[in-house]
Design a protein around this nucleic acid. Structure first.
Length: 296
RNA sequence: GGCCAGGUAGCCAAGCAGUAAGGCAACAGUCUGCAAAACUGUUAUACAUGGGUGCAAUUCCCAUCCUGGCCU
């Protein structure tokens, strides 16, 4: 497929920086459609706490990769890439401009830089078996099963070791080196920049709004629909904090404190991630972004 | 007022004669198959104050101040 003149705009940035608003403006201006790149907004029933855009806020701009998975199941970067590619093709067919927008750097990388990987579902029995092993033991197991993967993996990270073992065990073949298949389109990556102090305030403000909108209720609903506390805790940050609170393990005050703190820590992790990507052009407002997009 | 317990880095907390674990936070970073996850590294002239006894005290003794609990 020769698609050299096809273009994609990507918008990245820390949480609460205003990516969503920017993406809508750009989409309207340049006849675009939006592909969300957010590892939590893919789940149904998780709207308030993920700051998912509402129908009204979309202003008629089509969105992809929202509400594509059940929170009961695990969604992975591999699935994201698959669905993302599909969305890209759909948008191109309509001769519109795809705008990938989100804060999950890994998903964006999976899509744009094209990490090729088969989908592997979690194997709970295997995980249970591996659960009691030490990191060292896990590493040894992986080394035996897939020496190449063992070479590059972070050997102190049990989470990744388990997943790697799961993958070899289920696919029955070592993957070894990972292939990449970058998209053949030209991409403009815009980063939304915010002063740290300002960002902190934006996070706080948005968090308060979540609470007013019934974030706690949202969690209760998740629980009622049969999702375990453990699973809800896995969603991290404020989902974890309030899940603990509703179980009576921490006070409401602690939950709020913890949420805010973790939200801020997340922001910093995102910054660390995006810092490495030299392709990102950082902007402070919509005007700058529009200018870039025009040139592009 | 009396008795008891305790005062160790921003917070929690171990040690209790040879100058001080750990956890959280903070800061930095990793990431190519769970990524709002998981993991790594770095940082702090921290032992309430004043005396005393020791070669040596954060550690023992005395006093003072503060905090918590109990009693009157």
């Amino acid at each position: 497929m020769n698609a050299g003149n096809k273009k994609i705009i990507v918008i990245v940035g820390p949480t609460a920086s205003g990516k969503t608003g920017l993406s809508i403006k750009l989409a309207k201006k340049f006849n675009g459609e939006i592909i969300s790149a957010d590892s939590r907004q893919v789940y149904k029933q998780m709207d308030i706490g993920t700051a998912k855009i509402t129908k009204k806020e979309m202003e008629g701009v089509p969105h992809y990769l929202l509400d594509v998975a059940s929170p009961k199941k695990k969604f992975t970067a591999a699935q994201y890439r698959k669905l993302g590619m599909k969305a890209l093709n759909t948008i191109f067919k309509k001769e519109k401009l795809p705008i990938v927008c989100g804060g999950t750097g890994f998903y964006i990388q999976a899509l744009i830089d094209g990490i090729v990987l088969p989908e592997v579902k979690p194997d709970w029995k295997l995980r249970e078996k591996l659960g009691s092993k030490t990191t060292e033991e896990l590493y040894k197991i992986l080394k035996k099963l897939d020496p190449k993967r063992a070479k590059t993996i972070d050997e102190d990270n049990p989470r990744r070791l388990v997943r790697a073992i799961e993958i070899v065990t289920l696919t029955k073949k070592p993957v070894g080196e990972i292939k990449t298949d970058p998209l053949p389109y030209s991409t403009l990556i815009i980063g939304v920049q915010r002063e740290p102090e300002k960002l902190k305030k934006l996070i706080e403000k948005r968090f308060k709004i979540w609470l007013e909108q019934g974030f706690v209720k949202e969690i209760k609903k998740l629980r009622k629909s049969g999702i375990s506390w453990k699973r809800i805790e896995e969603f991290g940050m404020h989902y974890r904090a309030f899940a603990l609170c509703l179980q009576g393990k921490i006070t409401e005050e602690e939950a709020e404190e913890r949420s805010l703190r973790e939200l801020w820590q997340y922001t910093k992790r995102q910054a660390t991630w995006f810092k490495r990507d030299q392709r990102i052009i950082w902007v402070k407002n919509y005007k700058e972004a529009e200018k870039l997009a025009k040139q592009f």
